[in-house]
Design a protein around this nucleic acid. Sequence first.
DNA 1: ACGCCCACGTA
DNA 2: CGTACGTGGGCGTC
Length: 952
Amino acid sequence: MSVPAVDRTALPVRCSGTPVGEVGLSVTPPRLADVTTTSSATSVDAVLEGPRPRLLLVDGHSLAYRAFFALPAENFSTSTGQVTNAVYGFTSMLINLLRDEAPTHVGVAFDVSKRTFRTEEYPEYKAGRSATPTEFTGQVDLVKEVLAALRIAVVTKEGYEADDVIATLTGAARAQGAEVLVVTGDRDAFQLVDEATTVLYPRKGVSDLARMTPEAVEEKYGVRPERYGDLAALVGETSDNLPGVPGVGPKTAAKWLTAHGDLQGLVAGVGSLTGKAGQSLRDHLDQVLRNKRLNAPVRDLELPVVVDDLAVRPWDREEVHRVFDGLEFRVLRDRLFATLSADEPEVDGGFAVSAERPAGSDAAAWIAAHAAPGGPASGVAVLGRWSGGSGDAWGLALAGADGATAWFDLRELSPDAEAALAAWLADADAPKVLHDAKPALHALAERGTPLAGLVADTALAAYLCQPDQRSYDLADLAVRFLQRELKVDEDAAGAGEQQGVLDLDGDAAGPDEGQLACVRAAAALELSAVLAEQVEQRGGTQLLGELELPLVPLLAQMEADGIAVDTAALERLEGEFAEVVADAAEEAYAAIGGQKINLGSPKQLQVVLFEQLGMPKTKRTKTGWTTDAEALADLNVRQPHPFLDHLLRHRDASRLRQTVEGLLKAVADDGRIHTTFQQTIAATGRLSSTDPNLQNIPIRTAEGRRIREAFVVGRDAEVLLTADYSQIEMRIMAHLSGDEGLIEAFRSGEDLHRFVGARVFGVEPADVTGEMRAKIKAMSYGLAYGLSAFGLSRQLTIPVDEARGLMDDYFARFGGVRDYLRGVVEEARATGFTETVLGRRRYLPDLTSDNRQRREIAERMALNAPIQGSAADVIKLAMLGVERALREQDLRSRLLLQVHDELVVDVAPGEREAVEALLREQMGARVQERTQLSVPLDVSVGAGASWHEAGH
DNA sequence: ACGCCCACGTA
DNA sequence: CGTACGTGGGCGTC
């Protein structure tokens, strides 16, 4: 499993220097020179290697105090009565910061005592504050415990405030070229802001941080950050008990400072100031200069740490568990591990494998001894390949529950050994665990030794636990869940001197593929236990065992079957599309004076469109202006030009030709296309299709549909059937929201958009015009994606107000939908995940992000995931039902494709009626029964000699 | 050779 | 400033 990018940057390299233990007690306080230069080798390495360092500095007391007042104490206390609201809020904020800001270095500064050089000069400093509540004081130590467990350095300096520590470290880090983020509720820190130093200032609560960049400071206070201290000296700071100049507010102060450059200049020119404010300043000059001395952070403290000591380190996992258990922070701990668990766990050696090579009759004996049917599951790893409809397996490793491993080279297996192995593989009572079983099923089936008795697939289990991962590599899972490298444990007794292990490369030192396969089998077996527990904790055991796992052999079968194509038809299409491409290109060139640019290059197109033809600029992309179809069509209205027509025609035709070419390349020797269905890619639970993708074959345009005509009924089949759900996502939304109106719409059998349109526009269904219906349709579907009024207005090209009115009217009639959409996000924010009808979860840690864009993206995902994911649950259930019904009725028809809400079936001769009936029955009532959906599932079925004809 | 961007196909 | 995917060409980088 690859680690998400954000985690990688969050906790990158282990610093090669001596680990710093108790930072606060560091023996030799480095001199200032150590702080500001990169004198030690470690420092230089840490700074020069890898991405630009990002130092996160937190004012611990300030943030915890904020949290204390932001979160109601009565909601946060342990069973022993310890109040934890400040610890909770602080930790929550810290987790978000680590995730969102991905710092490479982190330090938390605390004030040590009330006595500082500031109180020496001005005893009233920070006086007049109400006494710190006792419920808070105790929590500071708990915060420090959390930090210790996370191995985040706590930095303090006797006689100084946290801000001084932060200012000093900021200066040192900036001198080393690092970016700095300061998190504090003390505005004096704004003085530190520069182009690479940002202050995150809590606005309200524990999740709303203002990002104070130089621009933000200037916009808010009218002066650059370096002048903020001057401004504060003039205006005063209530919380520090520093009075300002009476009659002088931020506006006047900023005006003066701008006019005189800085406070020094202002003092020099104080005589020339006019008016009451000027006199007031002259009267309070001493006070202002004192304020300035007191509010200036000390930037050159001698500290017990240097910046490199703050490098992010792997946390102490046991300690994290201990501390979080004590605080009873269950959700927070899950969030911590879910979002930031890419630290480097202490990885032990590899797997001790015996890697025996039982041959002849010993094979059966080994199996009986270590992997007997009816016993505990064995790990299986297959070496082989499968793609595009053919493949082979040449090696097989088994790992028994007793720890023994064996390796079978399938190329040189004796007949009796092969028979024993094949019997065991095919024995459904011999339970097997694989990692990513589907390719192995293919490879073994190709060899004529099919596998049954699959009881666990560790890739699927990991997918259900963390569906947003991109891949689920066995080696990554081993490190993550077993804290072990996927390798042979060389230290294990006898591992290096296995009898009979051939080294195919002649490399005596390294383990051979047989040993490595044994490692994979052993790892899969061990992992399956750990992951089963993880899945269980997430309530996914049934989903895994009764849906995803049984789907594996079915998908394998569908892939192996493939769908027949009319190759000749595809070739004719390719030729036709190629002609259009050539013709359109010619005419396009002619329209721009014969320039033969590359029409497929957005960059060259931009030169022609915006520079040569002087077209108005379109929407921006990251690298220029868009030349997408919508923009070109729009340009053609505003400034018609033949080039645009030919370009669009060229685009369309070349895309179609490209699609056809791809399909032709994918046709296997059997005249069929064998896609691969990916079961662990889509975070919502959908399948995806690759090599080639058969889930995005054109259907919307007439030309595109001609490609569908080339997908045809198989040679031994009678007809293709397609069965699809109508409006499944809207039905799911009706069910999940429980909205009476929407449920009624589906039960009434009326056309959905007409029904909804009638309600929204307040007319009879018969009076809903086509235009009204189109608007309703766009809005209804948009809602399931988190569409905004702005987005709706843009899509329908109507004013935003009208779009907003439309949505308001919709929600007025279908209030349950509004309540649901609101509730689903709030619940997900509280629990950390969304859930489908079958309990499939999607974790969305960004719902509590301080970063508005990330948070809003996560909110839209939270809206959509239960809907899209439940629809995925539904059709997966239907697939299993259809397959079972086909088998039970001894039908030979084959399920071939799934396209999210559609199934395609090759129907064997004479089975058409039966298959159509079972499709309707299984996809409809049976699934509704299993999911307890409150709306009926409408299935429409079509038949034909091609996918096009069978479609509706 | 690899990765990113753009554009665009599906549900 | 609407979710979920996969593919292919262009183009910059190594």
